[in-house]
Design a protein around this nucleic acid. Structure first.
Length: 185
DNA sequence: CCAAGGATTGGC
DNA sequence: CCAATCCTTGGA
């Protein structure tokens, strides 16, 4: 069953943990592509120096200041798309980056790593940024609670963020082989 | 306008 | 380890 906006309207760290084990679904022109989410990262507040929201509501990151339950998809390094869900309350910028998944259905590529996950599910900035996750095209489906333990560790590739780089806001399912490198301790 | 650098990936 | 590749951002 599709998750409702109220699911996303909570602290990004809570949402990031709650997303583990659920299915990210893209109905791609009638073809269903889905992956079980096994790795997420929370970006929380304008003070978070690792977040795109650190410069305020700019053209790219402005969406993080808006209502929850919206897709935030951007292009990184000119080659990879990254999919996020906007969380929390309007005015307080926050989002959860979907970093890896376990293939369920219709996957076109490896689902390990944020850029690969988008490629596997055919998620693109131009088609999906700003899309409502209560739409019938892109959404997250509820599912049974994961059996694996949840591990919290520092976020990946945010060394530029000073002390914010140490926040343990990356969440992974322990022992799952689809978690990306670097593997947490 | 220009320069710098990035929430990555894959190849050497 | 490092380059690819283009978009976003801040500053002149």
């Amino acid at each position: 069953m599709k998750l409702a906006r109220s699911f996303y309207a909570r602290d990004a760290r809570k949402v990031a943990k709650a997303l583990l084990g659920k299915a990210l679904v893209h109905i791609d022109g009638g073809v269903r592509r889905a992956a079980r989410i096994v790795e997420t990262e929370a970006y929380h507040g304008e003070d978070d120096e690792a977040s795109h929201a650190r410069f305020g509501p700019t053209r790219r990151a402005g969406i993080m200041f808006g209502p929850p339950g919206i897709a935030y998809v951007y292009l990184i390094y000119g080659r990879s798309h990254c999919a996020n869900v906007v969380t929390g309350t309007e005015g307080c910028p926050s989002a959860v980056l979907l970093r890896a998944g376990e293939p369920i259905e219709g996957c076109l590529h490896s689902t390990i790593g944020p850029g690969n996950l988008c490629r596997a599910l055919a998620i693109h900035r131009d088609a999906h940024n700003g899309l409502d996750l209560e739409s019938d095209e892109l959404f997250v489906e509820d599912g049974p609670a994961p059996r694996e333990r949840i591990i919290a560790s520092p976020r990946v590739n945010v060394g530029f963020a000073g002390s914010w780089a140490e926040k343990p806001w990356r969440y992974t399912l322990q022992g799952n082989r689809f978690v990306s490198k670097p593997w947490p301790d």
